[in-house]
Lab assay of single mutants.
Amino acid sequence: HMTFVALYDYVASGETDLSFKKGERLQIVNNTEGDWALAHSLTTGRTGYIPSNYVAPSD
Rank of each mutant, 00 (worst) to 15 (best):
H1M: 12
H1K: 13
H1F: 13
H1T: 12
H1Y: 13
H1I: 12
H1V: 12
H1Q: 11
H1R: 11
M2W: 10
M2H: 13
M2S: 10
M2Q: 13
M2R: 12
T3G: 07
T3Q: 10
T3C: 15
T3W: 14
T3R: 06
T3P: 06
T3D: 09
T3F: 13
T3M: 11
T3S: 09
F4G: 05
F4I: 06
F4E: 02
F4R: 06
F4L: 08
F4D: 01
F4V: 15
V5H: 05
V5K: 04
V5F: 07
V5Q: 04
V5T: 09
V5D: 05
V5C: 09
A6E: 02
A6H: 00
A6K: 00
A6T: 08
L7P: 05
L7R: 04
L7M: 10
L7T: 06
Y8C: 14
Y8G: 05
Y8D: 07
Y8P: 00
Y8F: 12
Y8Q: 09
Y8H: 08
D9L: 05
D9I: 03
D9E: 06
D9K: 01
D9C: 05
D9P: 03
Y10A: 01
Y10E: 00
Y10H: 05
Y10S: 01
Y10M: 02
Y10D: 00
Y10T: 00
V11F: 10
V11T: 12
V11E: 13
V11A: 09
V11K: 08
V11H: 09
V11Y: 11
V11W: 10
A12P: 05
A12R: 04
A12L: 03
A12M: 04
A12N: 04
A12W: 03
A12D: 03
S13A: 12
S13F: 10
S13R: 13
G14R: 14
G14L: 08
G14T: 11
G14P: 03
G14D: 08
E15M: 09
E15L: 11
E15Q: 10
E15D: 13
E15P: 14
E15C: 13
T16P: 05
T16R: 13
T16W: 15
T16S: 13
T16H: 15
T16E: 11
T16N: 15
T16D: 14
T16A: 12
T16L: 13
T16C: 15
D17Y: 13
D17R: 10
D17A: 08
D17Q: 15
D17K: 10
D17I: 08
D17F: 14
L18S: 03
L18M: 14
L18Y: 04
L18I: 11
L18A: 06
S19L: 08
S19R: 05
S19W: 04
S19H: 05
S19D: 06
S19V: 06
F20C: 05
F20Y: 03
F20M: 07
F20W: 02
K21Q: 10
K21E: 07
K21F: 08
K21A: 08
K21R: 11
K21G: 05
K21P: 01
K22H: 05
K22M: 07
K22S: 06
K22Q: 07
K22L: 04
K22G: 03
K22C: 06
G23T: 01
G23R: 01
G23A: 02
G23P: 00
G23E: 03
G23V: 00
E24T: 01
E24Y: 03
E24C: 01
E24H: 04
E24A: 01
E24G: 02
E24P: 00
R25V: 15
R25D: 03
R25N: 06
R25H: 11
R25I: 15
R25T: 12
R25S: 07
R25P: 06
L26V: 04
L26H: 00
L26F: 15
L26T: 00
L26K: 00
L26M: 08
L26Y: 00
L26C: 02
Q27K: 12
Q27P: 00
Q27F: 13
Q27W: 14
Q27L: 15
I28S: 01
I28L: 10
I28Q: 01
I28A: 02
I28D: 00
V29W: 13
V29C: 15
V29F: 12
V29M: 13
V29G: 05
V29L: 15
V29N: 06
N30A: 14
N30Y: 14
N30W: 13
N30R: 11
N30E: 12
N31I: 14
N31F: 15
N31S: 12
N31G: 14
T32L: 15
T32C: 15
T32Q: 10
T32F: 14
T32A: 12
T32S: 12
T32R: 10
T32E: 10
T32M: 13
T32W: 15
E33W: 12
E33D: 13
E33K: 12
E33L: 13
E33Y: 13
E33H: 12
E33N: 14
E33C: 15
G34M: 06
G34H: 07
G34A: 07
G34K: 08
G34D: 07
G34W: 06
G34E: 07
G34C: 09
D35T: 10
D35G: 14
D35A: 11
D35C: 12
D35I: 10
D35K: 11
D35H: 11
W36P: 03
W36C: 07
W36G: 03
W36R: 08
W36Y: 08
W36L: 06
A37H: 10
A37E: 04
A37D: 03
A37C: 14
A37W: 15
A37T: 12
L38D: 00
L38T: 03
L38Y: 12
L38K: 04
L38V: 05
L38H: 04
A39M: 04
A39Y: 05
A39P: 00
A39S: 02
A39L: 02
H40K: 14
H40A: 06
S41G: 01
S41E: 01
S41A: 02
S41K: 01
S41P: 00
S41N: 12
L42T: 06
L42W: 05
L42G: 02
L42C: 12
L42N: 04
L42V: 07
T43N: 08
T43K: 09
T43H: 08
T43V: 12
T43D: 15
T43M: 07
T44Q: 06
T44I: 01
T44L: 03
T44D: 04
T44S: 09
G45A: 04
G45T: 03
G45F: 04
G45K: 06
G45L: 05
G45H: 09
R46Y: 07
R46F: 08
R46S: 07
R46L: 12
R46G: 07
T47C: 14
T47R: 08
T47E: 07
T47W: 14
T47P: 00
G48V: 01
G48S: 03
G48E: 01
G48Q: 01
G48A: 04
Y49C: 13
Y49A: 03
Y49E: 03
I50R: 00
I50K: 00
I50T: 00
I50E: 00
I50Y: 01
I50A: 02
I50S: 00
I50W: 00
I50C: 01
I50H: 00
P51A: 02
P51E: 02
P51V: 01
P51R: 04
S52F: 15
S52T: 15
S52L: 15
S52P: 11
S52V: 15
S52R: 15
S52I: 15
N53K: 12
N53I: 10
N53W: 14
N53H: 12
N53E: 09
N53S: 14
N53A: 13
N53P: 06
N53Y: 11
N53Q: 10
N53R: 13
N53L: 08
Y54L: 14
Y54V: 07
Y54N: 04
Y54A: 14
Y54S: 10
V55L: 11
V55N: 05
V55W: 07
V55R: 03
V55K: 04
V55D: 04
A56C: 12
A56R: 10
A56L: 09
A56G: 10
A56S: 10
A56E: 10
P57T: 08
P57L: 13
P57E: 09
P57V: 10
P57G: 08
P57I: 12
P57Y: 11
P57N: 08
P57S: 09
S58R: 07
S58K: 08
S58Y: 14
S58E: 15
S58T: 12
S58V: 15
D59V: 12
D59G: 12
D59R: 10
D59H: 12
D59Q: 11
D59L: 12
